[in-house]
């Protein structure tokens, strides 16, 4: 067997070194580009969520400051010094206006739950579960660990927790088929958790076409933007658990 000329080995070494440089540079560039892309995407998502909340707050304010005030004025006109017969005639209109005011108030509070900041997270969640239970017929319970009632997360973090719980409960009511659901609130020194669980039909988490999938993505983005973490555990016919963990200090 003839010996391989030494020059051939150097050619292999040269080519090998060059290939290594090219592959290393390309690999590093791909990793850096991917990280930049993900960071950009997350900033964009956080910006969109913030813009969405601001829009909702504006609409809620308009509903409260304009629409509700006009309904109140109309009710006041109906309560004027009219004879009894006239009042009886407009009673159905009055009832309709009062009902309309209730609906508008509910829509406004759903759009921007100012009471989360006013009353605190746990009372707000208690109100949410009661309203949903009454509207849907699903038995929803809220349990809190001792001391959780005194949780005082930053307003931004509280609102994120409320929104995530709101979305998770909406999914529970719409998709789980469960007759019962549970909300738990607990906190420790530096973070608090909100857990929404049911024993309904569940889903395969990898299934991107599952109803409510976009809602899960939105919840995860909210949690991430607030510096927290969302975990969704579910399997077909084994129920679903949505666990949100947030630091006390939320976004500004």
């Amino acid at each position: 067997m003839s010996a391989v000329p030494p020059g051939v080995w150097w050619a292999f070494l040269t080519a090998g070194l060059a290939l290594a440089v090219i592959l290393l540079a390309l690999g590093a560039a791909l990793v850096i580009y991917q990280r930049r892309f993900v960071a950009l995407h997350r900033r964009h998502a956080a910006g969109l969520l913030k813009a969405q909340e601001e829009e909702r707050a504006w609409v809620a304010r308009e509903l409260h400051d304009d629409v509700l005030q006009r309904i109140a004025m109309a009710l006041h006109e109906l309560d004027g010094d009219a004879p009894e017969a006239e009042r009886t005639r407009v009673a159905p209109v009055r009832a309709e206006l009062e009902d309309l005011a209730l609906v508008v108030r509910r829509v406004a509070s759903r759009l921007h739950p100012a009471f989360v900041e006013r009353e605190g997270l746990v009372p707000a969640l208690r109100r949410l579960t009661a309203e949903l239970a009454e509207a849907s017929g699903v038995a929803l319970t809220l349990t809190e660990e001792p001391g959780a009632g005194t949780l005082t997360p930053a307003p931004g973090a509280a609102l994120v927790a409320y929104r995530v719980a709101q979305e998770a409960l909406a999914n529970l009511v719409r998709h789980s088929g469960a007759a019962r659901g549970a909300v738990q609130v607990r906190g420790n020194g530096d973070a608090f958790e909100v857990v929404v669980a049911d024993r309904g039909r569940g889903f395969a988490p990898a299934d991107g076409g599952t109803p409510g999938h976009l809602g899960l993505i939105s919840m995860a983005e909210r949690a991430r933007a607030a510096g927290g973490r969302l975990t969704v555990t579910s399997q077909p016919d084994q129920g679903t658990t949505v666990r949100l963990r947030l630091p006390y200090r939320g976004p500004a």
Partner: peptide, 22 residues
């Protein structure tokens, strides 16, 4: 292409390190 632009610039660093090592 942004990835290629990054790769070319990173290749400078890799090339210098590889040269010193060689």
């Amino acid at each position: 292409n942004e990835v290629l632009r990054l790769a070319y610039r990173l290749a400078i660093v890799v090339l210098v390190v590889a040269t010193i090592a060689a």
